[in-house]
Each structure stands twice: as structure tokens, then as C-alpha cells.
Design a protein around this nucleic acid. Sequence first.
DNA 1: TCTCTCTAGGTAAACGTTTACTTAATTATA
DNA 2: TATAATTAAGTAAACGTTTACCTAGAGAGA
Lengths: 333, 333
Amino acid sequence: MKITIKDIAKMADVSTATVSKIVNHKDQNISQATRQKVLDLIEIHNYVPNRVASSMITKKTNSIGLIIPDITNPFFPEVARGVEDYAKLEGYHVILCNSDNDLDKEVSYIGMLQEKMVDGIIFTSSSLRNKVSKEFLRLQIPVITVDRDITGMRAQGKITVDNTTGAYQGVSYMIERGYKRILHLGGPMTSKPALDRFEGYKTALDDHGIKYDEKLFFEGNYNAQWGYEGVAQAITNNLEFDGIFCGNDMIAIGAIKALNEKGISVPENIGVIGFDDIYMATVVTPNLTTVRQPNYRMGYKAAEMLIELIKHPERKMKDVVLKTKLVIRESTK
Amino acid sequence: MKITIKDIAKMADVSTATVSKIVNHKDQNISQATRQKVLDLIEIHNYVPNRVASSMITKKTNSIGLIIPDITNPFFPEVARGVEDYAKLEGYHVILCNSDNDLDKEVSYIGMLQEKMVDGIIFTSSSLRNKVSKEFLRLQIPVITVDRDITGMRAQGKITVDNTTGAYQGVSYMIERGYKRILHLGGPMTSKPALDRFEGYKTALDDHGIKYDEKLFFEGNYNAQWGYEGVAQAITNNLEFDGIFCGNDMIAIGAIKALNEKGISVPENIGVIGFDDIYMATVVTPNLTTVRQPNYRMGYKAAEMLIELIKHPERKMKDVVLKTKLVIRESTK
DNA sequence: TCTCTCTAGGTAAACGTTTACTTAATTATA
DNA sequence: TATAATTAAGTAAACGTTTACCTAGAGAGA
């Protein structure tokens, strides 16, 4: 039998209220003698308070849900780590949910999280989808989105990255280094980040007196496969280009692989730049020049905002837009 | 105000017991008319059952704790995904805990998980540490360890990988391909997997008539940094070798980087083989020949065992030892 | 001495479910 | 027709806490 607050109370010959006060450090009005007696008993009998019972009363579970598409996607472990770190600091637990960007799974998770009475939800997406289940819109608890909006819903908080400026800086850098015809292998244009990066790309060209050529723009997915195929296709089509701005690092990694196989040298013949700065970027040959996204920060910030909202639901949160940073390595000359 | 089972019961003019039975599908003895009436009310008012209240009675929270050192380490997302996938299948939630192999954090997490009344715990470690907190030993709930033992504790279940055979196969393959003096850049020998791989390495040499030379064995960590340094050191020491068997892929990636920088060609001059088969192995140049560990499987299996134990605590679990697989790519000739 | 204010703790309801047991009505069986 | 069995519910305790409110005694001030 598990030992409860009643057992401790009986043994200490006090009421459960007294024990409760001591356990929760609301014990200004408890004598040192009683406190010590109770604390000793707790230690001896290894009493651990049942937080599900407390939750019934306090209406707080001290847990938050983290919905991401796939922890296996190298983008997400860092944001997960960020939210977990801050959550722990504040005594919250995080429940990990992999949605695979699948509406059904999302609905199912939202249901489970609601039933478990989580205090809030952080929602991250790889932005491959723009719809969101109506279950989301019904939610009574605070939701923070990171990296994207939820259409039709005003989430209580929003963390994004300044993708436009990031792309602008990356592309500008390429132009300044002498690259003139820069291919853009973008992510899916249904997603805001992909759109913003495309925007930054165009503006950078424009500001440097280069006319945007739509033949140099390809829309695809966020994976290495697509980077590989995109380059292969461009070459087959005899497209002329001397640089590639990729929608993310995975695309860039695929692109470099294709170039290597064709015997095209990076960065001498063609420069490549990615987006994200995942660890792999430092490991491929050549090391990838890329626009770093503060993934850990995003997660951490998201948890910060969420927990502040949990504590003060009436507070209005300002959206936060994090800055990117150009990381120059070897894939550009 | 959140709507409760009582509200539904009142509106449907039935008892809460009836509603409860319907919600939990224990409704053989409920008339279709009543069932439908209640179901409709639930739908209309968007009633969601409070599982923390149920947990009080059923003594089950349907959640499990997953303690890993760091989700950011490329080894772990796959195992996390494995446990999450199976857990979801069975209606369990997983609470993610990053321990950083730090005893204090571990103790803190165990405390929190106990208080939250998780039904079981999966404990994974990067094997950098062998001690475990006494809090672990006190735990009343089932614990499954993956990848390593907990010293002094008989966990209710254990998932490991046959590291010895894996190493044996990898090293044998190198020898058969003509490599003769094979360096071993191992992980920390405080960890069982590192030891077993070392064992497999020696046995393979032995079985192929090559004498083990202790000058060719280096003990280190599990990261790329160490691989880089290990090789640099070996070269500085004018050590003669034509192959490297690495304690894991990260080490191998670091080693290849060092070799590349010295202008030593892989695999022509020196062959390199890793362990794990993380995604990065397919992305470095040359692609890494490695011994694949079934990470996802490990996580999945662990969740399977844990949940079986939760349902049938009396059952005795057989330890499972998963097989590795040699994946031949480009870093060996 | 009387009243007031602290101090140290106790009382008991409440949180939202589940479930063992009970009950009333209906149907089947002999 | 009398009884047994089945169906379709309802009753109320229990789960382990927290907390608003209460109380008894001690000391202080007048």
C-alpha cells in the first residue's frame, strides 16, 4: 500500500491539513517541533505526495503538451530541449506528441491532452500544412505556436523567426561574393516560412540590381531527397546557375550530394547556402554556409510565454520574432 | 466553467454512473435510447472527461516517463519516437526528461515522475555513468532500461543490443577487405556497450589470426571531437594503421574529418567504420560504413515491455537482445 | 479582570470520477 | 400463476489532496 498524507498525519498525531501545509511550505503558522516531526516521518516512510489528487483541487497539472511533427526531424530536438529546459525550471512536465503533420493524429492528441488536463500546449509544425483541426480552436487552455500561425485562430502567443531578413542576408552575401545566377530550391509555398524566405530571396536580388528569373525558382519539400532531385532536374534542363539558396539545410545537403556526383565543385563552381544550421551542416563536405535559426531559443521562449500565460491568463503576449544569423563556412567562396 | 459528468447527467436526466458507463464503453446494460441521448449531449456541449479524476480511482495515469540524457544527441530521437509510437497505440502519454547524465537531475525527475504517478519509466542512458540514484531503487513502478543496466538494481526489463557481435562483424569485415592494422577509437570503458564493442573487436582480430596490439586502442568519449583528436594524436605519434573501428558514428565522423584535413584518403588509404547508423552517416563524405543499431526498435520494444508490465505486474520479462546489422557504404573499400 | 490579538492547529467540504452493490420493472420459465 | 432471471438503471462511498473557515489557549494592554 502506498503511504498517503493521512498515514503521515495519523503517525504524527496531527491533521492532514497540517501535513499539507508543511509539504507545500505554507507553514508559517506551524511550530518548529511539529514541522520537524512531520518532516522526519515523511523521510522515514518515503512519503511522496500524490499530485493527481492535488491537481483535482488546484486545477493545475503542471504539465504542458508539446506537439511537433516528428522528433526524428533534426529541426525539432533542439526546440524540444528548449521547452523542456524551461519547463523543468518552473516545475512543469512536458508531454511529447509526434503528429506527423497528420490531422487525425493531431485531433487525437489534442483530445488526450485535454483529458489529461495539461495546463497549456506548444504547437510546432514543419509548416507543411496550413489547416488545423477545429479541436484546436475549441481549446480552453493557452496555446503558443512556434514557427507558424494557426489559420483562423488567434493563438495566445506566437514565436517566429525573421525568415525574410534571414533569407535576404544569405542571398545578399552570395551576391556580394560574386554569385550572379542564384537558384532557389524552396520549401512548400503553403508554408509561411518558405514564402518569407522566397520573399527575402527576391528582395535581395532586387536590391542588388539582379532581375528575378522565375525559371530559377523551384518549389519542393524540406528534405534531402528534394534537394538532390531539384539539382538533378536543373542540370538536366541545362539551367545556368552559379549558386543555390536552399529552403533549409536538408535540401542543401541533398543538393551538394547531387553536385558532388556530377563532379561539380562546391563552392568553386557553384555556391550553396542553407537555412537552419542543424548539426549536420558542420559535418558535410564542404561544411555548409547557412542561416542559423535559434531553435533552442524558440523552444525556450515558447515555454516561457506559455508558462507566463498559464500563471496570468489575462495577460496579452506580444509576438516574438527571433533573429537569424548568417554562418559562413565552406560551401560559399 | 468546464462542463462535468454531473452536468451531462443532469441534462440527460440520468445518474453520473450511467454517463460514466457510456463514456467508458461499459454500456452493455444501457438502452440505445439513453445512450444516444447522452452521446448527443456530450457532443453538443463538448464534454471532455477529466482523466485526473479517473486516475484517482483507477490508480492509473496512462502516462510513462522517458528519461534520456539528451534528446539533442542524435542517438535518442529515434528511440524516443519508438516509445512514443507504441505508447500512443496503447493510449499512453510519454513525459520527456533530459537528464544530461546528471545524478541530481535524475533524482529530481524521478521525484516528479513519482508524484505525477506515472505508470512506469523507461530509462535510457548514453552509458557514460554507471551509478544510479538510490531513488531509482526505491521506485514502486516498473522500470525498463534500454542500452544498459542499472547497477545494483534488477530492472523489471532490459533491452540491449548485441554490441559484441556487431563489433565482431564490423571488424571482421574490415579484415576480410584487406585492412590489417585496425585502430580502435572506443567510447568510455565505464560503459557496457563500449566494453562489449572492444571485446568484439579483440575477438575478431583473434579469430583472424591478428594479434591484438594495445597501442592501437584508444579510450575516449562518444563525440566527434574525440574522433578528431584521436586520429590527430595517432598520426602525431606516427602510429601505423590502415583502418579505424570507431566506438560510434560521431567518433567516425570526427575521425574522417581529421583524415580529410591531413589529406589522407578514405577508404583507399585508411578504412573507417562506425557504429549506430545515425542519419548523418549517409550524409558525410564518404558515406559511412557502419554497424546499425535498431534505435527505433529499441524504443518501441521498451514501450511494449513496459506497458505489458504495467498491465500484468506479476509477469516476468525476458531480457531482449536486439541484433545489429552491418551497413556497407563508402568508407571501407 | 476583561477584552483583544496572536499562535498553532483542526474541521470538513470540495475536486470529478468509478464501481460495487442495490433496486425496480420486465420477461422468461415451470 | 408464481417465481426466477434479465435488463436498465441508480446510490453512495471512495480516491488523496487543499483550503476557507473555525477554535482554543496564551499573552498583552487597560
